[in-house]
Design a protein around this nucleic acid. Structure first.
Lengths: 176, 176
DNA sequence: GTTATTGCAAATGATTTGCACAAGG
DNA sequence: CCTTGTGCAAATCATTTGCAATAAC
């Protein structure tokens, strides 16, 4: 089993590579390359963090990239269609997007019930098992997503969890 | 691995048992038993089908049980809180509810990409694996949900899939 | 009686859409 | 040019909420 290392930022070259992938997709579909789309891609893939549309919109504005909400939503759909971005289910009310499927095409998520922390992981055994189950049920495997909800051991043993404190202070996920 | 048999209806006794469970929860919380709540519970657990709030509202109206949309939504929340009903992620835009967690507390879902059919299954191996992964990541297991998306072999091999035809005719999930 | 529940209609809030103007190719 | 993309503001639509009337207990 491999737990993903959290990168804080991605190199410009990586971003350019993704922009080129998008352009390839765009050309194939007879669509057009625009500065807004490139800017949104650059902002999304400058971090490996999950985000909601609204969080992304904040980042776009802070970067002084002028792309409207409408364009942002349309670009999110486009990126999903191009398979560069995945929608994931973290249980919230807003849709959450995960930019890490390019690097790790088949990772899954563990969500901490206490602090909201999301840990990404890959596991070959689960992959294989999912595959077996799918075939046994008479289907052909396509995609699988596992969401594990769990409790924070840090909180339980030490009485404190740094993530929890941060979450309560800043996140929209915890409003208590 | 066990694939759930699909029941078409549940016996009245089962429904009464669930109503009593709800009443227990209601008493403990200092809340009140009402005919609307009982009616909604009876309708939900008369089938083992997944449903959206709006689909349930249709069933409520057809049964001439007068409960408003507001009451219905509030009752859905209550049932979730009482752990009698689970929200599941079938990928749609509306929330989907699954009434089968009382009978099978830890089942998972396979969703057919082609026809939208949802198959429930349980698998001990996956349970164990999830448990291991959770602990290895430093958390304590709480809940896990697996969503497998797959392609219909019936459609692939026979060129037709009865579920697909039905889905196209009736479902709101497929609008093509 | 006191407090929770209901139903209605209005509010919310994320996402989508129509349309006129801008801008890729 | 021709067609696609953008930004704005308005529309959507599931879900939530405030409030006065109603009903548990």
């Amino acid at each position: 089993m491999l737990q993903k290392e959290s990168k804080t930022s991605m190199e410009p070259t990586v971003i350019q590579a993704i922009q080129e992938k998008l352009n390839l997709f765009i050309n194939k579909k007879g669509l057009r390359k625009t500065p807004q789309r490139d800017a949104i891609v650059a902002i999304i893939f400058s971090k490996d963090e999950h985000f909601t549309a609204e969080e992304l919109y904040d980042r776009v504005r802070r970067a002084n990239s002028n792309a409207s909400r409408a364009t942002l939503y349309r670009t999110l759909s486009l990126l999903e269609e191009a398979d560069l971005l995945h929608e994931i289910d973290l249980g919230g009310d807003q849709k959450t997007y995960d930019p890490n499927f390019i690097d790790s095409p088949s990772h899954n998520h563990l969500i901490c019930i206490d602090c909201g922390k999301v840990v990404e992981f890959e596991d070959d055994n689960i992959e294989i098992l999912n595959d077996c189950i799918t075939r046994r049920l008479g289907f052909r495997p396509a995609k699988q997503s596992i969401r594990i909800e769990a409790c924070c051991e840090t909180l339980r043993s030490k009485g404190v969890c740094q993530d929890l404190i941060q979450a309560r202070l800043s996140s929209k996920r915890f409003k208590k």
